[in-house]
Write a protein that binds this DNA or RNA. Structure first.
Lengths: 360, 360
DNA sequence: ATATCCATTGAGACCGGTCTCTTTATATCT
DNA sequence: AGATATAAAGAGACCGGTCTCAATGGATAT
């Protein structure tokens, strides 16, 4: 009675049709759920399909329909809580709309991103959500549009591309955080980013190839400029990609004269590293130095003191990106929209008045 | 010179063949890189393909070859660092071997898992890596085998299924952690799991449907039994699925007479919640109570005190699972293997002698 | 009884690749 | 030169669905 283990070849509509004694077309109609069929025949076919354990070959289906039911997502690093949460948001919306998600990691590298995109297009995804590693190289993204695959950018935007994007309101978030520090009496505020760079220091914010980083840096800069701080750019640092490099960045920063009294970390990973650096150096937060991190990560609530953070509704951003894409997939012809999601500052305990605030 | 935006229909081998003035078969040979072709023709075709911006349709390719080049992964929750790290390990290995990964979330629910599996099989994935939500329901997993799709279980194993698995050595890890607590003088040790359950208390460890949870519980129990502790089961708790329920679990636990002097958390999420509960209650770690968490998560190193953890090499586990699957995909006929990856206890500062250790 | 209509069902082309088999052209051998 | 081997290219079937169009047949209309 048992199936022979080696029933390799899979059951097709033709097999079911034969078993149900109807034509392939008819069987296909009930199995695919599209044409009109009499109840009697529908039953026969359904029964036969069940008996044979028929499973539709989505590949074949996709080939004729031209739709794969898959949304491709290219992120910088799934391991990063920011992206995994976003992906969760995307997946949840996608599943509800009947789409599946296929994920590719770019490792924030342009070449990896290009090949991921190529591959996903090859797999005939219906749409793409991409976190572009660089906002100044977009040939491959233009290709996507050329092929006619809807695209939504996530976390970073490229206005020149003329394509939907969902990001945080990075400029505003950074400016708000900076203004808060200014209000708390800080006059020397550092910003530390994980963006890979040859030089820790920044020469010109316009050359930052990542729009999220650029926006934030400009927010930090502008808020300070508005407060009359001179040369705020000296405290902007890049390249905090791992613990060792972060330690170095923090050390160099503290050697500046005067040393910054507050540190802003560009994401929760950098924030964690900065926290550890500070801890290792023996500085106490917020008495010796203040800090703010982007993203309301797990760890920020259980440190002593808990960390003041710029909270981005990442899950919602993921959802929004997916919703946008799916609307386009459903043929809605809507104007290109660049959504910047409002962020908020969650004040906890890592910011205080600077040590010698009288000196000012 | 510009392409008309609406070049909808994609370029096919036939188009390239026509442009290169060769037969479809010949063009396919060079485009697909399989038959023998003269250099001259190869050049012509390559040139034509480039000019037309030909992109192979992987769907069509998959359909004839029967291989999709995709590995399906079904996890409990990508948002959980444990899974996202594992997925990273899986993806890295997969990409190197030329495979892509498509991820589905089960939310630890059997039905969602079933439909995810169905869907992935429909997409004709070449192989599957699944974290089974329950180890006592496996019809859908048997189906996978029946269809002939190689399967590797991750994090949890089901011996009866006769299929490869990669897990941590949960029993041993739990026993080791428990023995450490016993050595530190603890006689009342609690174990808190996030496994959903009607009742917080456990009646019989054999009815735990998740093998990882079961193994750990049994490890905790057995280590205590060996040390002559009586009725250790009274301190085993389930259902710490969110902060509120964890708070309740911890509260109830502390109302026991005598109250446990050490808490073991089943994963980093539970650990974080337990830490917060304890903090909220105002208990100091490790002076008032000791704790150990599973998984070396971010947050465990920046708390005061840092948390002693059972470290699982999750990334490597992911890699191993993928390697195993890919070996099978490459037709290697190897015996079924259940790999339990060694874990280690990282002693930090959250364990001390119990408050009144003399009382014992 | 005959024509008309509508509901079903069947036949077969098609999607874009792969792959087998055949044909053609060139090179090698005696 | 004629026979044989071999490399290269072409024809066309096939994968497993979808979908168009034609054929069939019973019900209703005249």
């Amino acid at each position: 009675m048992e199936e022979p283990l080696a029933s390799k070849r899979s059951v097709t509509v033709a097999d079911v049709a034969r078993a149900a004694k109807v034509s392939k077309a008819t069987a296909a109609r009930v199995l695919g759920g599209y044409g009109v069929v009499s109840d009697k025949v529908r039953e026969q076919v359904t029964a036969a399909a069940a008996a044979l354990e028929y499973r539709p070959n989505e590949l074949a289906r996709s080939m004729t329909t031209g739709k794969s039911g898959i949304i491709g997502v290219v992120v910088g690093d799934i391991e990063n809580a920011f992206f995994s949460l976003a992906v969760r948001g995307i997946s949840d919306v996608a599943r509800l709309a009947g789409f599946n998600v296929i994920i590719a990691n770019s490792g924030e590298e342009l070449e990896a991103e290009k090949s991921a995109v190529d591959l996903l297009i090859g797999k005939r995804v219906d749409g793409l959500i991409v976190t572009p590693a660089r906002c100044d190289r977009m040939e491959h993204l233009q290709d996507i549009r050329r092929v006619g695959v809807p695209l939504v950018l996530f976390d970073r935007s490229i206005p020149e591309l003329g394509v939907d994007s969902v990001t945080g309101d990075d400029f505003d978030a950074a400016a708000t955080a900076t203004r808060y520090l200014l209000d708390m009496g800080h006059r020397h505020i550092a910003y530390i980013s994980a963006m890979d760079a040859d030089d820790e220091r920044l020469t010109d914010s316009r050359e930052l190839s990542n729009s999220a980083v650029r926006e934030r840096v400009e927010g930090v800069l502008e808020a300070q400029a508005a407060a009359g701080i001179e040369d705020p750019q000296r405290y902007i640092r890049l390249g905090a990609t791992d613990q060792a490099r972060t330690d170095a960045v923090v050390k160099h920063l503290l050697q500046e004269m005067p040393a910054p009294t507050a540190l802003v970390a560009s994401d929760s990973l950098v924030g964690l590293r900065v926290f550890k650096s500070l801890q290792a150096i023996g500085l106490s937060i917020p008495d010796d130095i203040s800090m703010i991190s982007f993203l309301d990560a797990d760890w920020t609530t259980v440190t002593t003191p808990p960390i003041t953070v710029v909270d981005q509704p990442v899950y919602e951003m993921g959802k929004k990106a997916a919703e946008r894409l799916i609307s386009r997939l459903n043929g809605k012809d809507m104007p290109v929209e660049r959504t910047a999601v409002k962020t908020s500052l969650i004040k906890r305990g890592s910011v205080a008045w600077p040590p010698h605030s009288s000196e000012q």
